[in-house]
Design a protein around this nucleic acid. Structure first.
Lengths: 245, 245
DNA sequence: CAGTGGTCTAGACCACAGC
DNA sequence: CTGTGGTCTAGACCACTGT
């Protein structure tokens, strides 16, 4: 019954994987196989599609990795409860963000200072020992109007070469992205009424709602950098478009 | 020279995949293999690890999927430039969010109305034809204080059974998550100065910064639901912790 | 205990990008 | 044209789990 959707000029010959994968995805997403439904065993799929077990195994492994099915030895593979939603927030450098909007980009380095971490910072960042920080503040512009404010700390123990980088020419985010590998990062996103210096730099009235994105990045156990972006109120939004798989 | 690291009490017997995978990951993340570096060919890795080509191929395919390497026919596999960062925002139901904070959960259904889509909505949502909507407004509470305001539209063409669901007892988000599969979703996250009725419902002063999350969900080409969550100012933040792979 | 998934092999053919 | 990755096969053994 379930023939492949053969319409719409299939000019691109799909591989066997992809055909089976999208076929099974359709069964699941369409609701034809509801959550909890046991999907055919690997041996059955092997027969249905006339291929080897490795091939269907590859597909089922992918489906399991995507969270669409759950696999249990001896019992079989089952359609999972609709998964909790997960959004992939693509956050490239600010420069790329601005360019994507078709605007011209510029940034000002407002502050650059090397100093030791303060006790409050160590508490907030979960650091055991004092570390040397490079503290940077810069303002990014899109077409001459403020786009976002960046306040960053770089751990010079982890990235000593950052002390010699020229952050007048290259924004620190871009530089780090290209020079420092990372293993874990954490984002905190919240709204805040802007005040004080930040309001002035962004040319906003006091109390204007701003989107604040704080990111902390580690390499292994070592903190690499922490940054706080403040985006002017309703003029900016994060967009995340995604699919379950 | 690259013998397998055989020391350190391997109490958990890793599979061959996993051993090779973490081995290669280490080379890359440690910086020993910088971006652009050509990693050994499949045939070479086959020799180094004394396994079949399928096994190393599986590993390299995973690394490529994770964006750590790029594979080019005839040329080889290369360590990629540090990828653009991507955050996985885990957004479960509001109920789960509140429970995760260790608070008690309650919600009020404030409005429930079936009506046709307005032209403005059709424009905003990119709908060609008029569709019947179920419009819901509810307020979620955590320990008796407002946690967030939810304004939702459900496409009754796509989810007719929503017309009979009891949204007095079960929040619409939870119900939809469990009953309606989806294929694509899109999030817009921004900050906003709260005003009017929303401010009253959330018991906030006018102008308080709020985090607004708008989500639109489709199944195939059909819009399923769109929802707008308004979180009280600085009291709430989205958190996303993630690794590259 | 039986049957499932998990893993792995030693081949094979093909498409395609570099040389 | 050559060599690489991309895919696929027809087996195999093992670990785990549900009965």
């Amino acid at each position: 019954m379930n023939e492949v959707r053969d319409d719409e000029g299939a000019d691109k010959p799909l591989t066997l994987h992809q055909r089976i994968l999208s076929d099974l995805e359709n069964h699941i997403v369409s609701g034809e196989w509801p959550p909890g439904h046991r999907i055919p065993f690997e041996t059955e799929l092997t027969e249905q599609y006339g291929c080897s077990r490795m091939t269907v195994n590859k597909v089922l492994t992918q489906l399991a990795a995507a969270g669409l099915i759950e696999r249990r030895r001896k019992a079989g593979s089952f359609v999972m409860q609709p998964r909790s939603e997960a959004a992939v927030l693509a956050i490239n450098g600010i420069e790329a963000e601005v360019a994507a909007l078709g605007l011209s980009y510029r940034f000002d380095l407002l502050k650059r200072r090397e100093r030791m971490s303060t006790p409050a910072e160590r508490r907030r960042l979960g650091l055991d020992d004092a570390v040397p920080f490079l503290a940077l503040t810069c303002c990014h512009f899109a077409d001459a109007s403020p786009f976002c404010l960046e306040e960053r700390l770089i751990n010079l123990d982890a990235v000593p070469q950052a002390g010699k980088a020229d952050f007048e020419r290259e924004p620190p985010g871009t530089w780090l992205l290209q020079h420092v590998p990372w293993t874990v990062a954490e984002h905190h996103i919240k709204a805040m009424n802007v005040r004080g210096e930040a309001a002035n730099l962004l040319q906003l009235d006091f109390g204007t709602a701003c989107l604040v994105v704080e990111r902390q990045t580690w390499r292994g156990e070592q903190m690499v950098t922490t940054v706080r972006f403040t985006y002017p109120g309703e003029r900016h939004q994060l967009v995340a478009r995604f699919s379950p798989s």
